[in-house]
């Protein structure tokens, strides 16, 4: 509860934030504070300076951008979960956002802060990877777009450079006949994902035409389940094929499944097919509804 001292700097524009970042090596960015403040309180982080980007209004809000939704980095989980656009065209993301932490956490925590923190047990990365979302990172010399699958590189590490700030997340919108879902095995204490599975399924005349799946929580960072995707593509959208395809997720997990005192790596690996299957079924059901 007693953070070490730091200097507090406030940015009202991206340009100002970049200036402050350049002038203060080692400074940390503060958005909603729900990733950084807990670290500060326990002195697990003790940066010399904290740059509050909360006042940068251009980083807030959800807007259509072609076939995608652009979600500003400072958009709170509550806003993402409540957004009609997100619920309609990226249901898995709304579902994941609605399950982050608890209501008060969702009122302050932001999508940008969440993904920059890159906790392996976080929910949003799994969905963003599954949905082929991209992260807009802005550096002093302009912005670049990083596919979500390349953004998350390890436990609490990302492709973000020291002088870059997450400005937005761009999420492709589901079209008619496409559904997405996120299902989660929540840790009973932390509410983080022990296993999380996100899926987007395009159903055409009862067949899974396109399949996108990612898993998180049990691996160092969210990753695509391409073996599952291949196995299900072209198969009938029914329970037996979901189960058969989901079983292939073991090929996607790799050798670095996390285990801890609550759930061993072996158990988590055994749960991955179950949660993938459930995510596929839920996504396909939604595809039928849209």
């Amino acid at each position: 509860m007693f953070a070490a001292n730091f200097e507090y700097l406030r940015a009202t524009s991206l340009a100002e934030a970049h200036r402050l970042l350049a002038a203060n090596p080692g400074a940390k960015l503060l958005a909603g504070g729900h990733s950084l403040v807990p670290l500060l309180k326990l002195r697990l982080a003790a940066p010399p300076a904290v740059i509050d980007i909360g006042p940068i209004t251009e980083l807030r809000g959800i807007a259509g951008q072609g076939d995608s939704l652009r979600i500003g980095a400072l958009t709170t989980h509550a806003a993402v979960a409540a957004s009609a656009e997100v619920r309609t065209s990226a249901a898995a993301l709304a579902e994941a956002a609605a399950g982050v932490g608890d209501p008060a956490v969702r009122n302050r925590g932001t999508i940008g802060g969440n993904i920059a923190h890159a906790d392996p047990a976080s929910d949003l990365p799994t969905v963003l990877v599954a949905l082929d979302a991209a992260v807009v990172a802005v550096g002093p010399k302009g912005e670049r777009t990083i596919p979500a699958a390349e953004f998350f590189t390890g436990i609490m590490t990302t492709a973000l450079r020291d002088n870059e700030i997450v400005a937005a997340v761009v999420v492709p919108m589901s079209k008619r006949g496409v559904g997405s879902a996120y299902v989660k095995f929540a840790h009973p204490a932390s509410r983080y994902a022990v296993v999380g599975a996100a899926a987007r399924v395009a159903v055409n005349k009862g067949t899974c035409a396109e399949v996108q799946v990612a898993v998180g929580g049990l691996v160092p960072h969210a990753r695509r389940a391409s073996a599952v995707e291949r196995a299900l593509t072209g198969q009938p959208a029914e329970a037996a094929s979901f189960q058969a395809a989901a079983a292939r997720v073991r090929e996607d997990l790799g050798g670095d499944v996390n285990g801890d005192v609550f759930a061993s790596a072996e158990y988590r690996a055994a749960m991955a097919p179950v949660y993938v299957k459930r995510a596929l079924a839920a996504a396909a059901a939604r595809a039928g509804l849209t």
Partner: peptide
């Protein structure tokens, strides 16, 4: 290992 309310349910 269960030293906080993050781990102790």
């Amino acid at each position: 290992l269960t030293g906080s309310l993050i781990d102790y349910a």
